[in-house]
Structure formats: structure tokens, C-alpha cells
């Protein structure tokens, strides 16, 4: 193993890891936003909107994220959507993550005993008041861990955008392999950095989970 080489290139990998983190953060924010919209649609009182929500989830969970990215980035211009690789990466992965988060959030909401909603409605709370005052505070506690799993998957999925040439960790590793012919070292370096990111995020999620359980 060529440790010297690894020490020499790792600053560039760190920089790339920064982009992976930025990509993850933006994707997570967009994903959460799409997830909330998705849940609102899935729980709508209008059948057609519920159908749209269900269709969103099925389509984006039912096809490879890589194909979704390719359609957006390579196919987009054909239908008038011009995005640079980074934008396409964030938007593609964010919409994809949103489909998973929709199901996570919905799962937490529907697992709250229906007596809670009934008690709230019986007091005269509107459907929306019952949701944000009674259901969501309880569901939020149940969501932290599974959303943490979504986040973990999402961080790893950012590696896919290497395929559309965003210079994040995986792409950086591939680039250095091209010049050094040392795939073991380069992928190992990338792998270690992914692991560090995911470990830190995992600890953060565990901390948040403990915090919401106590209060």
C-alpha cells in the first residue's frame, strides 16, 4: 500500500469530501421538503392528490436513482431543462430521497394511535390543529431514527453523481486512479472519508433521538 501517495493526495480528497457534505446537506434539505409535500399529498382528503403522492413514491422508489439522475441530466436538455451537473445531482437525489422520506414520515404519523386524533377532534380542534399540536409532536419522536437511516442512504447515494462528473469524493478517487493507477489506495481513502462522515452523522442522529425522547 502506497501510504506516501495517500498522504500526498488526501488534501484534495478532503476538499472533495467538502463537496460531498455540501451535496448531502442540500439533498437532505430538498429531500425533507419533498418528503413533507409527499406526506401532505398522501394524507390529502382528495383522492387524486393522494394518487399523485402514491405515484411519486412508487416511481422514485421503483427505479434506480442513477437512471433518474441520467434522465434529468442527460435527458433534461431535450425537454428544455438545462442544469449543470451539481444542480442536477442535488435535484435528482433530493427528489429521490424525498420519496423515501415520504414513507418514513407517513409511517410515523399513521403509527400514532387514532384515539389521539379523536380526542383532539372531540375537543373541537380542526384537522390541521390536531395534526400539528397532537399528532406531529408524537410522530416526530418516532421519525428521528428512520430519517437517520434515510440520511445515511442519501449520503452514500451522493457517490452516484460521480457518474455525471460532479467532483465529489467518488469522482475524485476515479480521477486520481486515472493518473496514479492505484485504485486500492484511492478508493480506500474515499471509503474512509465516507465512513467518517457517516459516523459523525450517525452520532448526531443518535444524540437527537435521545434528546427528543426525554423531553
Amino acid at each position: 500500500m502506497d501510504i506516501d501517495l495517500m498522504l500526498k493526495v488526501y488534501p484534495f480528497f478532503l476538499e472533495a469530501a467538502g463537496l460531498t457534505i455540501l451535496l448531502s446537506i442540500l439533498t437532505a434539505i430538498l429531500g425533507l421538503f419533498c418528503g413533507i409535500l409527499g406526506v401532505a399529498a398522501r394524507l390529502s382528503r382528495f383522492a387524486f392528490i393522494r394518487f399523485l403522492g402514491a405515484a411519486y413514491v412508487s416511481v422514485f422508489r421503483g427505479t434506480p436513482a442513477l437512471i433518474q439522475l441520467f434522465i434529468l441530466y442527460f435527458g433534461g436538455p431535450q425537454i428544455g431543462i438545462q442544469l449543470d451537473a451539481f444542480e442536477a445531482g442535488v435535484i435528482g437525489l433530493g427528489i429521490n430521497a424525498g420519496a423515501y422520506m415520504t414513507e418514513t414520515i407517513r409511517g410515523a404519523i399513521i403509527s400514532i394511535d387514532k384515539g389521539q386524533r379523536e380526542a383532539a377532534r372531540t375537543l373541537g380542534l380542526s384537522s390541521w390543529q390536531a395534526m400539528y399540536k397532537i399528532i406531529l409532536p408524537q410522530a416526530a419522536r418516532l421519525m428521528v431514527r428512520p430519517l437517520g437511516v434515510n440520511l445515511n442512504m442519501l449520503i452514500k447515494a451522493t457517490a452516484l453523481v460521480a457518474a455525471i462528473s460532479v467532483i465529489e469524493l467518488t469522482y475524485t478517487a476515479q480521477r486520481y486512479i486515472g493518473s496514479t493507477y492505484k485504485p486500492f489506495e484511492m478508493f480506500l481513502l474515499a471509503g474512509v472519508l465516507y465512513m467518517i462522515i457517516i459516523y459523525v452523522v450517525g452520532r448526531g442522529v443518535a444524540w437527537l433521538d435521545r434528546k427528543v425522547q426525554i423531553t
Binding site: D113, G115, Q116, E118, A119, A120, P137
Partner: peptide, 12 residues
């Protein structure tokens, strides 16, 4: 006012 068999108090 309504009172339920299983109370349905808000646990949070």
C-alpha cells in the same frame, strides 16, 4: 365533552 374507554390523554 367526550370521555373514552382508553382515556386518550396526550402523552407528550
Amino acid at each position: 365533552g367526550m370521555v373514552f374507554q382508553h382515556f386518550n390523554l396526550f402523552p407528550h
